[in-house]
Computed example of a mutant assay.
Amino acid sequence: MHSRHTLTSSERSRLLPFVVASGEISPRDQRDLMERPFFSLSKTKRTTPILYATGDVRVEVFGMPEHGMATIWDADVLIWAASQIVEAENLGLTTSRFLRFTPYQLLTGIGRQTGARDYALLRAALARLQSTVVATTIRNGQNWRRHQFSWITEWEIRTGRNGRAAGVEIVIPEWLYRGVIDRSLVLAIDPAYFRLTGGIERWLYRVARKHAGRQSAGWVFEIAHLHRKSGSLARAADFAFDIRRIAARQPLPGYCLRVEHDGGRELLRIRPIGDLSTHAVDKTVSPIGTSGVRSIGTLGVPLSGLQACKTQLSLWPETAIPALNLSNLESNSYVDGPGRSADNASHPSIAPSRGRGDGP
């Protein structure tokens, strides 16, 4: 039995499968996805497009009426897939845009439970990832060129005789795959990210990881600018209220948040704290009330119970692909002292920038 969802003729017939066989690994995120408004921050269905433009950077995201736009929780699937690809390349394995894995591997890898409801939620997430249409100029060279794709070009869930999901096959787009195998475009993230429950705080952690990195001075953003960058449908005042609420709770792993004021501007300072477990770049190969906006700060999926489960990789004859398969500075704020962006952690200093738009 199987459930098949394709938009075009099967790419899987033309791609070698990358069969995921690794256990617990360090999660990695793709830089371009960490700061741009690629996902809905709400769990309620969103069909209102995201239309973001600054300088020569364009991001347009469209959700279909049937499923709605892919959410920042759905993006966990992409983070997990990227992490598996990076880990496999570190081990000298050939990777592919065509991934095979078990639902249990994915769900436990992103801190989800593995009950029937969670498998149903996974199906819904895959449907949103496939039906969401993204158009962007990021990584398309000096001349503006629209690159359009879906987060998953096709997917299939194989089921056993008892009807339980046993295996998953997905194909990710070339744009995302190339952004993962280029190690300069990948950052390790704290596994505690998956425990963040609110859409804004999840997005904010990714922005913090991308920009603040390990620099002691941290990074400062105008909250009004963060609102524009997030793609949130919340009113600017409600978004700012949510930022204050998050800063009061301090939920971001490895980072401290502080709201400041500079004249008439409300700012958010993000500083690294403690000994961050994440690395700047993977260098080997290849009492505040709640907001009135109900779509922000919704609860996430509870942590996994890590139930014992036999793997299902025997569904496919292959166990792995045997052969070896052989940036950007886009700050959206300013640093008000000596420091450097996370993109330039290896340099001793970078001159502070106070531009309100995105840098080159």
Rank of each mutant, 00 (worst) to 15 (best):
G55D: 00
D56Q: 03
V57R: 02
V57I: 14
V61C: 04
V61F: 07
V61T: 11
F62N: 06
M64L: 13
P65R: 14
E66L: 08
E66C: 05
E66R: 07
H67R: 15
H67Y: 12
H67T: 15
G68Q: 07
A70D: 06
A70M: 09
T71H: 04
T71W: 09
T71E: 10
I72W: 10
I72N: 00
I72G: 04
W73I: 05
D74Q: 09
D74Y: 01
A75T: 00
D76R: 13
V77K: 01
V77Y: 04
I79H: 04
W80G: 04
A81W: 02
A81F: 00
A81Q: 03
Q84A: 04
I85A: 05
V86S: 08
E87V: 10
E87R: 14
A88Q: 13
A88T: 13
L91Q: 15
T94P: 06
T94I: 09
T94K: 10
T95E: 06
S96N: 10
R97M: 06
F98D: 06
F98H: 12
F98Q: 07
L99G: 02
R100N: 04
Q105M: 11
L107T: 00
T108D: 10
G109R: 13
I110Q: 07
R112K: 15
R112N: 01
Q113V: 02
T114H: 12
G115M: 11
G115A: 14
R117A: 12
D118E: 15
D118M: 11
A120M: 09
A120F: 10
L122Q: 03
L122H: 04
L122A: 09
L122I: 07
A125E: 13
A125L: 03
L126F: 08
R128I: 00
S131I: 00
S131Y: 13
V134G: 06
T136C: 06
I138L: 15
R139I: 00
N140P: 01
N140T: 11
N140H: 09
N140V: 02
N143D: 05
W144T: 06
W144M: 14
W144I: 08
R145F: 03
